[in-house]
Structures are given as structure tokens and as C-alpha cells.
Design a protein around this nucleic acid. Structure first.
Lengths: 118, 118
DNA sequence: AAAACAAATCAGTCACGAGTAATATGTACT
DNA sequence: AGTACATATTACTCGTGACTGATTTGTTTT
């Protein structure tokens, strides 16, 4: 199936969001475009490292860049990405609440000893 | 500072979706709960492997499970997760379209002069 | 009880991806 | 031209996570 390749691409896309440094970058540029050095300073990170992550985010289609003078500005690709980040946050928070609230529901069934229902 | 731990948890959550096997599992149980062996058969996968991925998905709070006799049924935790999967797909498809449509916008700025492949 | 099946866990291998330092490319300014 | 700065790229190390086979736990049935 050509589906397989499409799935791979989709995974690559999702993986773009699934790294701490990359997510920090995305949060950093969520509201306004920034230069690489701005991001590096803000995250107190390694220039090479940030640059590579930005390249990754660009490949994934999550961000775009434009050059102005000797600076390169990175920004979220579009509103969809911004919405998605928000949605991701919402889902995470609510799931987290639910998990914390009822730890026996689902989470603990796997562990030995503590049994839940039935 | 506690933010840091929260961010880690969030990353763990997102990583739940960022693996081919796990995403296939999620697609498989998107509409109805299934047993481990059903999923193993459907994905033509390894029982141990699938089982570990299911444990991972459960830890992330993405799925829940219930036991019935000697079977364990897995399902998406709630509608939020289902919505999120749909949203994820939408965003992916539209971003992909945009990238394919205007390859010069963003993606290729990094490359020198010529086109990449694909 | 033992056998049969479902699922989880353990122990090990292996590849990939994140991080770092050094270097290269590119752009502006004098 | 040459210098200074911004960013990209290379080469490398290292930990993590995905996969596999074997074993264990748990459930049902005879």
C-alpha cells in the first residue's frame, strides 16, 4: 500500500512535536517569529543543536523561515499549527486531570497486585 | 520549575502518538475496543511488542483497558483522544498539501539553489 | 490437578536520534 | 579585500527506545 509511506510521513510530522527542545522552540515562536540566536538565547541552548532542530521542524512542515540580512526568522507555518498546539495542550491537560482523578481507571490495571474492577 | 516536569509529562504524552506501531494500534481501536490478540493479528505483529506498546499507550493516558475473562480489551481513553486523532490527521493532511503545493515556501529555503527530491 | 490459551514481563540486541564541538557557509560592514 | 557575526553542516559520542525470543503470570476448561 502507498498508505505505508503516507503513514511514515505522518509519523515524521508528529515526531516533530515529540521532543522537548523542539516543543520549547515551538512555544518560543508561538506568538511571534524569532531568529535562531534569539531562540538559542531564550532556551539557553546550543546553537548547533537548535539549528538542527529547526531544520527538523522545517522538514516536518511545522515551521517556515525567511531570511533577512544575516538573520533567519523562524515562525509557525500557519494558524493550523498554532491551533494544533493549543488543541494538543487542551487534550493533554484534560487527560492528565482524568488520569490523576481516577488512577484506577486504566492506569493501574496493568500493575500486578492492585486490581481494579471485576 | 515544576513546569519542567509538566513539560516532560507532556512530551511523554505526545510521544505516545509518535510511533508507527502505536499509531497503527490507535487506528485499529479508533472505532471499537479490541483484544491484544485481535490487534496482534490485525497488524501482523509480535505479541510481546504490541503488548509493550499498549502498556506505553496506557501509561501515557491515551488508552484504557478492561479485562474480561482471559481477554484484555483496549480502547481509546475518551472522545477527546478520538477528536485529537482526527484533528491530528486534518492538520497533517492540510500541511502536507500546503508543502506539496508551494515547496519554495519554507521547505526549500534551507537547501541551496536547486530542488530537493520527493 | 493439568492443559490450553491470553497477555505481561524479562533480558538482550540494535538502530536511531539528541547532544556537542569544530568547521564551513553566508551575509553585512569597514 | 578582510573582519565580524549569524547560521548551517559535519563528525562524532552516547542514551534511549523499538524489536525479538523466552519465560512468567493469569484465566478458563477439562
Amino acid at each position: 500500500m502507498t498508505q505505508s509511506t503516507l503513514l511514515d510521513t505522518k509519523i515524521a510530522f508528529i515526531k516533530g512535536f515529540a521532543d522537548k527542545t523542539r516543543l520549547q522552540i515551538l512555544l518560543s515562536i508561538q506568538d511571534q517569529e524569532k531568529t535562531v540566536s534569539q531562540i538559542v538565547t531564550e532556551l539557553a541552548g546550543n546553537q548547533s543543536n537548535i539549528s538542527q532542530h529547526l531544520a527538523c521542524l522545517k522538514e516536518c512542515g511545522i515551521v517556515t523561515s525567511r531570511q533577512e540580512g544575516k538573520f533567519t526568522y523562524y515562525q509557525l507555518r500557519n494558524e493550523l499549527i498554532r491551533d494544533f498546539l493549543v488543541k494538543m495542550d487542551e487534550v493533554f491537560v484534560m487527560v492528565r486531570e482524568e488520569v490523576e482523578c481516577c488512577p484506577n481507571n486504566g492506569l493501574e490495571t496493568a500493575k500486578r497486585g492492585g486490581r481494579g474492577d471485576e
